[in-house]
Design a protein around this nucleic acid. Structure first.
Lengths: 247, 247
DNA sequence: ACGCTCATTATTGTCCTACAATCTCGTCTA
DNA sequence: TAGACGAGATTGTAGGACAATAATGAGCGT
C-alpha cells in the first residue's frame, strides 16, 4: 500500500504521508527532535530509499523550518548511521557496502552476546523477569510467521527485550543503533519460511538460557543466531549493497 | 528544470566514498573541524576539566567564529562522548559516574576481544605483521615504566596497534571512541609500579597470541587485561566520579 | 528567620538573510 | 574527442534578532 508517490517534489520528503507511529516524539520534542523522528521514520519505512539525497533547502521548505535545525537533524542522523554526510555535497540516506555490512555484524556479534550475558545476570533484579516474559510472549506462538516487516518487528522486539533488562544503558543504546541500519529491512526481503523457523527456534533457545540463568549459553545462542543472519546477508545479491569500496 | 534526478536511488552520490583520510583536521579542515580538534585537545590534556561548562557565547568569542560552527562542534563532541549536552542548559565537559564507567568497561571488554580476534586473523594480510611488530616494540622493553601519562601513551598505542590491523574500520573507530573517555587519564593517577608491570606482562601475552595466530588466546588475554583495569577503577575513590545517578 | 512567589538574567533554540567556498554539469573550444 | 571554462546548485559560515527555557536572586508574607 505504500506507493511511490514521490514524484511531485524535488526530493520527495515524506511531508506527512506516514502515519507517525511514534507520536510521542512530536509532542514534547524540540523542532530538531521532530525532524529527526520524521526523517528516521522515512528511512525505516522505505519512503526515503538508500541513496536518496537530502538537500537542506528542500527540507527547510518541506518542514517549514530554517536551515539551522535541518542541519542539526542531519548531523544527528549521521551520528546514528542512518545518513551519510559528504563535505560540500550534502546528505544522502546511507547505503551500506557489503563490507560495511559484514563489519557491522562483527561488531554486533560480541556486543549482543554481552548484552545477553548481562541480561541473564540481571534477570532476577526487580521485575525484570516479568517484563522480559511479557515482552517475548510472541516467540512462543506456534502460528506461522508472516513475511517481511511483520516478522522483522517481532525480531526487533525480541532483541529489544534483552537490551531493556541488561542493565547497561550505554550498551543498550549502542546495540539499538547498530540494529537500526537498514540491513535488517533488506534482510526481511530475502528470507524464506524455513529461515523464519530457524530464527524463531534460536530466539526460543536464547530466551530459555536467559530465563534459566545460563549466561554463557545465552551468549553462545546469540552468537549462533547472528552468525546465521550474517550468513544470509553474505548470500544476498551484490546489487543489494553500495558498490565501489575504497581500499 | 532538469528533472532527471531522483528517478531511483541512483542519485549519483551513492558511489562517492569518503576520500578524506582525516589524519588531522587542523591542516585543511573546515572551521568546525578546527574547533573540534582544539576542544578535544583541551579535554584530553586537562585544560578543560570535567564539569567545565562550555558556553556558546564564550566559544564564539574565543575562537572568533559564529554560533553555527560552535554548536555543530559541540554536537560532534557530544557524539564522541566527550561533552554532555543538557537541553536549554548547554554543554559541559563530560564527567562519568561510577556506573557509567563500569558500563563502558562492559562494552569495551567484548569489543576489544573481538578486535583482537580479527587482528589475529588478519595478522598475515599485507604488511600487517610488520606494522604490528613495529608499533608494539615498546612493550618488549625491560626499562622501568614511567608513571602517569607516559605509560598511558604506551598503553594507548598498544591497543591502537590492534585496532589498526583488525581490518574492521567501524569496529576500530568505535573502540577508539570508547577508549577516549577520560577514565584512562584518571586511571593513570592511581597506578602503582606493580600495576604497570602487570599491564606490560598482559600486553606481551596478548601480542604473543596475536603473532602466534591464537585468536581465542588473544581474546582471553584482552579480556583478562581489561578486567584487571576494571578492577582498579572499581577501587578508585568515589570522589573520582560524578555523583548523583539519574534513575 | 524561613519559605514562597515573582521578576531578572543568562543561555540556548530557532529564524532570517547574506555571502563565500566548493562541487556538478553542460557547453564551448582547440 | 579531450579539456578548459563558466553558470548553476548546494553547502559552509557569518551575524543579528527574537522566543523559550532554566537559573538566580529580590522581595514578600507568615
Amino acid at each position: 500500500m505504500d506507493e511511490h508517490e514521490r514524484t511531485e517534489q524535488d526530493s520527495g520528503i515524506a511531508t506527512r504521508a506516514n502515519g507517525s507511529r511514534d507520536g510521542n516524539a512530536a509532542s514534547h520534542g524540540t523542532t530538531v527532535d521532530r525532524v529527526v523522528a520524521q526523517l528516521r521514520e522515512g528511512v525505516m519505512n522505505g519512503t526515503l530509499p538508500p541513496g536518496q539525497r537530502l538537500v537542506e533547502a528542500d527540507l527547510t521548505r518541506d518542514y517549514g523550518i530554517s536551515r539551522g535545525p535541518v542541519r542539526e537533524a542531519l548531523r544527528r542522523l549521521s551520528a546514528e548511521g542512518l545518513v551519510e554526510l559528504v563535505p560540500n555535497r550534502g546528505a544522502v540516506v546511507r547505503r551500506l557496502s557489503y563490507r560495511e555490512t559484514i563489519e557491522l555484524f562483527e561488531i554486533r556479534l560480541p556486543l549482543e552476546c554481552q548484552a545477553a550475558r548481562l541480561a541473564t545476570a540481571a534477570i532476577d533484579h526487580g521485575d525484570n523477569r516479568d517484563r522480559f516474559n511479557a515482552a517475548i510472549t510472541p516467540i512462543w506462538s506456534d502460528a506461522p510467521r508472516r513475511y517481511g516487516t511483520a516478522y522483522h518487528e517481532e525480531n526487533r522486539e525480541f532483541h529489544e527485550a534483552i537490551f531493556a533488562i541488561c542493565g547497561n544503558r550505554q550498551l543498550a543504546d549502542l546495540c539499538r543503533r547498530l540494529q537500526l541500519p537498514l540491513i535488517m529491512l533488506q534482510l526481511s526481503g530475502v528470507m524464506t519460511p524455513a529461515m523464519y523457523a530457524d530464527s524463531v527456534a534460536e530466539h526460543r533457545e536464547i530466551a530459555r538460557c536467559i530465563l534459566a540463568g545460563d549466561a554463557e549459553g545465552a551468549a553462545a545462542a546469540v552468537w549462533q543466531h547472528l552468525r546465521r543472519a550474517q550468513g544470509i546477508v553474505e548470500h544476498m545479491p551484490a546489487s543489494t549493497f553500495r558498490q565501489g569500496e575504497p581500499d
